[in-house]
Design a binder for these strands. Structure first.
Ligand code: DCP
Ligand code: MG
Ligand code: MG
Length: 878
DNA sequence: ATCCTCCCCTAC
DNA sequence: TAAGGTAGGGGAGGAT
């Protein structure tokens, strides 16, 4: 049966080998760092004051080198490592030697193509255990030479911090590099290349020049020239897509790129990448040096040879993958908090050969959800994965691949894992503790980078201990306990008054009332409401700030002191008169009495500031929650206090945990069944609205079907931009195949900064100017449209394009191209607006929008232009 | 503002 | 027949 499919696949998959390498490397690291000697050595290290010397070591054509290391003759021939043979001519090339590269053969190429480029190519099989052993050997060498300052990138590639070695021993970096290369060759029989630079980026770029079997040092003096001449597409992180997007600037090198306006680059490739790239173009690399980066997810997938005749078989696959994932988690001693399922679903009608085992043209669908319980248990993990599979509702026979993974990792048995990054508990948060301190990380970071945060982190453990002790106290925190009974009796009067007066007094005392804008003049200027609003927010700010400071400084007693002060002040009316005129004082007193809402707000905020809960996300105690539903206001404080009590009982609440609890509390207390959360999925027309609109923004709430096929009205409106400027004819009737309950016309919004892929369709919509009748189907696309075939003819001249779709991930498929085409078409349609209709023009587009069958329909625009004015443009959609 | 979900890109 | 995995960063859009 399918019992060992996943296992045997993994044994044979080179991508599984390189993908799973990191997990094995983590074990290597753990073994190394648990060495007493390693940590002892770390303690001795001081902050380095010599310039950084980073080396990047990469094995030359790794798999091919291993395969040929004992065969001189083979080495002289062009060879490639692949499952295929010259006979089968099928299979993907994993690695090839430099002789083969001279013919144009590359990793990732299909064997048949490679053989066309190089008919004499020799194919060699994989030997994963040899790669593993070789990699281990190399890492042992690097570890020994650098004293553990190694950042592993892959099985054939690592960074080494050689700053100390070259400085302390006065060694030329080149000598160290040669030493590495000598040892690697001697102990593995393979050659490697070493790039040297002052940071990881430069070192890595240097390796490119060093290859094969060489060393290259980007000396500080040559950095500027070196980076300026580096091709933009060679910068790590710039791949096919970003590379293509950047092409339009005509800047091939980093030096040229720096002359392109920053905003243009940002718009083209996105903010983060732009920042990274522009840094890189100056030779700057801000990547932190992390010997043991935190693991964030664990997953297993298989999209080869997956064919499921029945649902049972599909479920069995998922089960196997889930088992794999839970076993990996158990090995890593972690548990997952969120489950992901990925399904490759074949695009129907795409015919394939009988024996074909690949996934072919697919839509890749994903679903995720929080696990019911954080776990690494085989059964639990499998069940979570299976429930996602059910949700995706993919027909079994169309499944071409499955993937199961988890993230939101935590340690086993509630013990924080060294690699986990949980949210801090509320008390920790309030005390400003660092979320988690890792012993191992402390050692590393202290020695190498040594930033302030790292130093703080090392104190984490102590603080955590303190917190635990404090937590006990906080649970019986006097202030809160005093009020507990009161809260139980629904905000007993005396308690309310006590706090209200304390709050009032404190607000008044701490704030300089002139700055609070409590002057008559201000009052007249602002008007009552605005005036009260400003005053309130200032006062509460002050209370919060002061109480927070006191609490942080002196703990519970500090806060009590603040409140005592406030109470005392409240009683001493003299003070009021001392500082202000009797008239002013009277006014302030009157104001404070008058504004009940203010008082209540202040009261609750004083209470809440005890735990700084207002700043806690998801808690539902902030202003936003208050303002959100006027209808819920009467019970708001009551709920707030109820939750607060809940939270202060112990120190196990973390924001997201609490958010879930709060939902339950509210549902219970309000006796409202919790509404099923839903994500709108599919939207199609239900009724038709004809509406006469002019220039502006049409706003309406679309109706959609949710995952369970119920009709749902989206709470967020669609803003639909309607352009109607001269010289265009006035907008006439717009047919929306929608149930639109209400529509407003607002002033037009300014254009978004950057047209996203998703807004490309919106651009197309603008072409409706040329149409007499407009008919839009609102559907959606989360995925990019993928156009398998696109025929275009302009002015009766057919411009035919046919793309071969290579569904390999990362292959040059046509989605971006499709977007470009659509933009292009839109552009052309726009040119043929009414005032230029005399131009005879015919555009015929046949578009197959594959994603219509995807599961992830959202509201968005796919257009159907049914009829164009004067047959000017015809767009059909299959 | 921030979180959640889904999707895309990149690297080996 | 061929073995198209694994993990991280990050953007868009909706919900809260
Ligand atoms: N598409 C790819 C890329 C790489 N690899 C594997 C085989 C390589 O040998 C190994 C290391 O990748 P490199 O990018 O370092 O490539 P090589 O080591 O083969 O060549 P180079 O000398 O350029 O480093 O990863 C693979 O299986 N498929
Ligand atoms: Mg290599
Ligand atoms: Mg490499």
């Amino acid at each position: 049966m399918t019992s060992k499919r996943v296992e045997t696949f993994h044994q044979n998959s080179r991508l599984h080998f390189i993908g799973s390498w990191r997990a094995r490397y983590e074990e290597f690291l753990d073994a190394k760092t648990s060495d007493a000697s390693a940590s002892a050595k770390n303690l001795l290290k001081k902050k380095p004051n010599h310039p950084p010397v980073i080396m990047h070591v990469d094995m030359d054509c790794f798999f091919a080198s291993v395969a040929t290391r004992n065969d001189e003759e083979l080495r002289s021939k062009p060879v490639a490592v692949t499952w295929g043979t010259t006979k089968s001519q099928r299979g993907e090339i994993s690695s090839c030697n430099y002789r083969a590269r001279a013919f144009g053969v590359r990793a990732g190429m299909w064997l048949d193509e490679a053989l066309r480029a190089c008919p004499t190519l020799v194919t060699l099989p994989y030997d994963f255990s040899a790669y593993e052993a070789t990699a281990l050997e190399v890492y042992e060498i690097l570890w020994a030479i650098s004293g553990g300052e190694v950042v592993g990138v892959s099985c054939d590639e690592a960074y080494v911090d050689a700053s100390e070695r070259s400085a302390r021993e006065g060694k030329d970096p080149l000598e160290v590099a040669e030493e590495i290369r000598r040892q690697v060759r001697a102990r593995t029989g393979c050659s490697c290349s070493v790039g040297i630079g002052s940071n990881m980026l430069l070192a890595r770029l240097a390796t490119r020049r060093a290859k094969p079997d060489g060393t290259f040092f980007v000396a500080p003096a040559m950095e500027r020239a070196f980076i300026a001449a580096t091709l933009v597409e060679d910068i790590p992180g710039v791949g096919r897509t970003a590379g293509k997007k950047l092409e339009v600037f005509g800047a091939k090198t980093c030096g040229e790129l720096l002359r392109v306006p920053v905003d243009d680059v940002r718009r083209a490739i996105g903010g983060k990448l732009a920042e990274k790239l522009l840094d890189a173009a100056r030779g700057v690399d801000k990547t932190p040096w992390r010997v043991r980066p935190e693991r964030k997810s664990v997953g297993a997938q298989m999209s080869w040879g997956v064919r499921c005749a029945t649902d049972d078989i599909a479920q069995d696959f998922v089960r196997q993958l889930a088992n794999e994932v839970s076993q990996r988690m158990q090995r890593l001693k972690i548990r997952g908090g969120r489950m992901f399922l990925k399904v490759w679903r074949a695009i129907p009608d795409v015919r394939t050969k009988r024996d074909y085992q690949g996934h072919g043209a697919c839509d890749v669908l994903t679903r995720s959800k929080p696990m019911l319980r954080v776990s690494n248990d085989t059964e639990i993990v499998a069940n979570e994965a299976l429930s996602l599979l059910r949700e995706l509702r993919v027909e079994a026979t169309l499944i071409r691949g499955l993937g199961v993974s988890v993230n939101k990792l935590e340690g086993e048995n509630g013990v924080a894992s060294p690699t986990s990054k949980r949210q801090p508990t509320l008390f920790q948060m309030f005390r400003g503790d660092e979320p988690e301190a890792k012993a191992e990380l402390n050692d590393e970071t202290l020695d190498s980078e040594t930033s302030d945060e790292d130093v703080i982190e090392t104190q984490g453990e102590e603080d955590v201990a303190n917190t635990q002790e404090l937590t006990q106290n906080e649970c019986d925190f006097a202030l809160f306990n005093d009020s507990q009974a009161e809260i139980d009796s629904d905000l007993g009067r005396s308690m309310r008054e006590a706090f209200a007066s304390a709050a009032r007094a404190y607000a008044w005392q701490s704030y300089e009332l002139t700055r609070l804008s409590l002057s008559k003049r201000r009052r007249e200027t602002y008007g009552e409401d605005e005036y009260a609003k400003r005053a309130t927010s200032s006062a509460t700010d002050v209370i919060l700030a002061h109480a927070r400071r006191s609490y942080l400084r002196e703990g519970a007693s500090g806060l009590s002191a603040v409140l005592d002060d406030a109470r005392a002040l409240c009683r001493s009316h003299e003070l009021l008169h001392e500082k202000y005129s009797s008239q002013g004082a009277a006014f302030i007193a009157a104001w404070l009495d008058r504004v009940d809402t203010v008082e209540r707000l202040v009261l609750v905020q004083v209470l809440l500031c005890v735990r700084e809960l207002l700043d806690v996300p998801n808690l539902g105690l902030g202003d936003a929650a208050y303002k959100k539903r006027p209808s819920a206001r009467p019970g708001f404080y009551e709920h707030a206090l109820f939750r607060l009590r809940f939270v202060t009982q112990n120190d196990r609440w973390r924001p997201r945990v609490l958010a879930r609890a709060v939902k339950r509390i509210d549902a219970h207390r309000l006796r409202n069944p919790k509404p099923e959360p839903h994500t709108p999925r599919l939207l199609f027309a239900h009724t038709t609205l004809s509406i006469c609109i002019d220039d502006g923004l049409l706003v309406f709430h679309p109706l959609v079907h949710d995952r369970r096929q119920r009709l749902v009205r989206l709470s967020n409106p669609i803003h639909y931009n309607v352009l109607n400027q001269p010289p265009y004819a006035p907008q006439s009737h717009l047919t929306l195949p929608h149930d639109v309950h209400s529509a407003r016309i607002l002033p037009r919004r300014p254009n978004r900064d950057r047209p996203s892929h998703y807004t490309v369709f919106r651009d197309v919509i603008h072409s409706r100017k040329i149409l007499r009748e407009r008919h839009f189907v609102f559907a959606s696309i989360r995925k990019r449209p993928r156009i398998d075939e696109l025929h275009l003819s302009i002015r009766d001249e057919p411009v035919q394009q046919l793309w071969k779709f290579d569904p390999r991930h990362g292959s040059d498929h046509d989605r971006p191209l499709a977007a470009l085409w659509i933009q292009y078409i839109a552009h052309n349609l726009q040119l043929s607006r009414p005032d230029s209709l005399h131009v005879k023009r015919s555009v015929r587009i046949r578009v197959l929008i594959v994603d219509e069958r995807a599961s992830c329909f959202d509201f968005f625009l796919v257009y159907v232009i049914t009829r164009a004015r004067g047959r000017d443009a015809v767009v059909e959609r299959d």
